[in-house]
Design a protein around this nucleic acid. Sequence first.
DNA 1: TCTAATTTTTAGACAAGTCTAAAAATATTT
DNA 2: AAATATTTTTAGACTTGTCTAAAAATTAGA
Lengths: 218, 218
Amino acid sequence: MFSQAEENYIKAIYALDTKTKKGVSTNLIAEKMQTKASSVTDMLQKLSEKRLVIYKKYQGVQLSTKGKKIAASVVRKHRLWETFLVNKLNFSWDEVHDIAEQLEHIKSEKLIDELAVFLENPTHDPHGDPIPDKNGELPSIEKIILATLQVNESGICVGVQDSSSKFLQFLDKQGIALGQKITVIAKEPFDDSLTIKIENRELSISQKIAHNLYVQLK
Amino acid sequence: MFSQAEENYIKAIYALDTKTKKGVSTNLIAEKMQTKASSVTDMLQKLSEKRLVIYKKYQGVQLSTKGKKIAASVVRKHRLWETFLVNKLNFSWDEVHDIAEQLEHIKSEKLIDELAVFLENPTHDPHGDPIPDKNGELPSIEKIILATLQVNESGICVGVQDSSSKFLQFLDKQGIALGQKITVIAKEPFDDSLTIKIENRELSISQKIAHNLYVQLK
DNA sequence: TCTAATTTTTAGACAAGTCTAAAAATATTT
DNA sequence: AAATATTTTTAGACTTGTCTAAAAATTAGA
Ligand SMILES: [Mn+2]
Ligand SMILES: [Mn+2]
Ligand SMILES: [Mn+2]
Ligand SMILES: [Mn+2]
């Protein structure tokens, strides 16, 4: 069907597309994929031939309907595999990304269908990211950045903005995990740091941390 | 580490090596891998450079110690994944090979270790083939071809010689499965067909079938 | 608006893995 | 032991995906 390289480009465009509303730029893709702009241009031309993207020279690129379906299916596989690794094989959430990057390219519709059933059709992966369904639809929950909560407001921790190993390990060390209730006790105007209550502990977190955590209001 | 192509060649040589005692020929590898002899030669030269095989022009090829370790590790992964698909995801034994061909190339030592634990360290895959341990050692059981049993002898069905979908589906249809006790009731000298008793049913199987089933004597 | 900086594309090269066709080595027959 | 047949290797080409360096287009600045 499609090569791993093609799927990776499609996935990168999909991820960048949601953030910027207009066409995704060559350089942005190059940066995301740790590659050179000229390589990106080459691939965009191939993907355009195959009608997976809409591409006009110098004008950036957008996924076609077909491209979007493929992207969603790859993301679905990535997140289901991450869920498998954490829920069934005792991996921690900071170890699974690179392995899922490989597993997401395995070709077998039945495999992914059965995996989803085995995992009891999860809607979110270990990082709180939504898992597209078979039709590519995302379950939408209204999550907001923790930093936007007012003092005395609280929410359930449901996701991370940054899912790098470094950040995830930091959260582990601080005892912060998905599903926990977080209440903002105080906000420090000087550096925008927050004092929060979590699992009956009080804890101060920097503005940067508060911008990388998602909470859901009840 | 090693590319999928390299791993596939190594695995093919490993499989052919056990059958023929001397060096494996270029043509044999080409046939097994559904490729051309010239492609095989190219690859053998690369593998030789990397010290994974011992290769002398026109003299056939053998795995080095390093090559054997890699082969065993790929076979281990292949068979563990097949076991996973059958035992956990409800695949039948005739559906798993092609998917395992892909999964066997996923790079992560922890993944395969945890998978083995999750599956409770199986020693044989769904086709009765032995799963190499972490050190590449094979559990040896003494299995013999069903056709070699004498009349009134019996054994437990423990493996297949041919593991093509066609044959496996045929066995399903006949109600023959691993673990069942098979007793030879009669042998027909005319066409070497066998009448066997299996699970209280009597059944006639051709010489060809009898040569593709392994049994273990008690 | 015209020039300068930045972004994007093209041109040409390279590595991996494959193929066909031809040459070389080995094996088999007579 | 030659002649013939078979196997194996080489030579040259092609595809995919990548890169560097240079050219072209776009954007930003004075
Ligand atoms: Mn991930
Ligand atoms: Mn994730
Ligand atoms: Mn198999
Ligand atoms: Mn098998």
